[in-house]
Design a protein around this nucleic acid. Structure first.
Length: 277
DNA sequence: ACATTGACCTGGGAGC
DNA sequence: TGCTCCCAGGTCAATG
């Protein structure tokens, strides 16, 4: 499932295709995924108009036309496929979007077996007040003050640092894989209370979050079970993971066994030797 | 305000 | 082979 690097990779691959193309028709094969899709409103706002920009905010992909924005979240198992036909090629295809433009007409299919994803829309100038966007924290990439932001926001918090950085109100885009990976890189124990993490540790953590996300984007995103690029290739960042999904295997730094614990029901991987503080 | 838990779904793999 | 159980990359809503 897509974390931030996967969504960024998908956005970069779809952008050249979509920008300047006209969304002729949006077809919804079922009216609800995670939540009901506002089908008539979406069609009215997006159909018949050229896409001006395609961007990512948090793990959402946004299709902007002159006045409206289409909002897409891929949940845990979502993907887009590109096709030259209207017929869905995969099971669990919940929506299909027909584009015309400079090149031949094409269809983008939205596929999400588990239906944890979201399709919505808003007026472009209202997006920041949208329920899904108004409480989001800052983007982690190209953010020079991330360390300070995390430090100040964490004072007094007893929540463990791993859950703290996974909360999108703290900072967006740090999912379960990259939370474990960045804490390992920064040598911070995942169970430590966020409020006890020092300013210097947060500076190191900010650097680690950024480097692990950027490295994954360069590699085309992590792939485990569900994520594929729109073109169908798998990403290959998984080969570079230091601790995630490596329970029982030796730490790449000290050779001690990698441990797996649960925090808020989610698996956390770490090295007890390298992550003492 | 903050912390914790449950809920939403399907599919794949492990174990019997 | 077939059944059951457990797990999965997210995040919102409801509850203390």
């Amino acid at each position: 499932m897509p974390e931030l690097p996967e969504v960024e990779t998908i956005v970069r691959s779809l952008r050249p295709l979509l920008v300047g193309s006209v969304l002729e028709e949006a077809v919804f094969h079922r009216p609800d995924i995670r939540w009901p899709i506002p089908v008539p409103e979406f069609k009215k706002a997006l159909e018949g108009q050229p896409i001006q920009t395609v961007e990512r905010r948090s793990k959402y992909m946004l299709w902007n036309n002159k006045s409206s924005v289409g909002i897409f979240h891929l949940g845990m198992t979502g993907r887009f496929t590109i096709s030259d036909t209207a017929a869905p090629t995969l099971p669990h295809t919940h929506a299909s979007f027909n584009f015309t433009g400079p090149a031949a007409p094409f269809w983008i299919h939205y596929v999400d077996p588990r239906r944890f994803g979201i399709i919505d829309w808003d007026k472009r100038n209202h997006l920041l007040e949208h329920k899904l966007f108004r409480d989001l924290g800052p983007e982690p990439l190209a953010n020079k003050t991330l360390g300070q932001h995390l430090f100040q926001l964490s004072r007094g918090r007893i929540l463990d640092i791993k859950s703290f950085i996974m909360d999108a109100k703290t900072v967006v885009g740090v999912g379960n894989i990259y939370a474990s990976e960045s804490l390992f890189l920064a040598k911070i124990r995942p169970t430590k209370a966020a409020g006890k993490v020092t300013e210097a540790q947060f500076e190191a953590l900010a650097v680690s979050i950024q480097s692990v996300l950027e490295k994954s984007i360069r590699a085309g995103g992590t792939t485990f079970r569900d994520f594929r690029h729109t073109s169908g290739e798998t990403g290959y960042f998984a080969q570079q993971l230091a601790v995630y999904d490596r329970e029982g295997e030796p730490c790449l730094v000290c050779q001690k066994t990698i441990l797996c614990i649960r925090q808020k029901g989610r698996a956390t991987y770490y090295c007890a030797i390298c992550q003492k503080a």
